[in-house]
Amino acid sequence: MTDIDLKSADTQDATRPAKPVTFRGGGFQIKPLGPIAPLVFIGLIAFWEYGSRSGFISSLVLPAPSEVYVAFAELVQSGMLLVHLSASLQRLVIGWTAGTVLGISVGLLIGLSSVARAGLSPLVSAIFPIPKIALLPLFVIWFGIGEGSKVATILFGTFFPTVITTYGGVDNVDRNLIRMGQSFGLSWSSIVRKIIFPGALPAILSGCRISASIAIILLVAAEMIGAEFGIGAYILLAGSLFATDQLIAGVAILSTMGLCFAWVIGRAEKYFLNWRT
């Protein structure tokens, strides 16, 4: 094509049909839309209440939200809510903290030592998928029917996912940062404390999110063993009595606990991981 050809193409512009380029982008971006979530939630509950009152949701199938509210109010008025909550929170906090601390320690060990990795990592993979509920009768014999077996159930449940996320996090720490530490003559313990642990912290905290949820799931299982008080025990009793209003109220308390934990961990992530882009 010569320059003359180009010129003639230019002059033809006026006569050739012109149209704007069709927009093909967009569509896959998630935009934040503030009040949608509460609206969906309120709408769902309103529909549920309407269904229960008009009778097309039988009270046998699902109690009305208002009945659930009454059951919850009774729980508050009787003062039992605090008793149940404090019993459960104590088990959760002790079990989860111990499970997390042990899990991080063993995870670091597996992440740092070849011997520990060869010896422990298959063991962890083998024990992790065992449903802890299946071991309940054994836990009764090992840890008794007091607080021991309840805390142990939660501890075992949170320990394994923490181990796995921790050593995954250690594996993902930038090798070059470790080399940098060595090049400045940092000691082994300094490299672990100042480079590897903070580098694995994002993975550890997201592991905490998972293990906190698992702890709440296991709370009901843990309180199957000789628990008089506790949200899990309350739910189990409601279930065996077919008191479905109390059952739903108990479940709602559990999911609120889940939300609170997620919020706390979210704050912790904001605080500890403010260096992330």
Binding site: P137, V140, M224
Partner: peptide, 10 residues
């Protein structure tokens, strides 16, 4: 309350 007969026996 121990939920299951097996747990009570244990």
């Amino acid at each position: 309350p121990l939920q299951k007969v097996g747990a009570i026996i244990g």
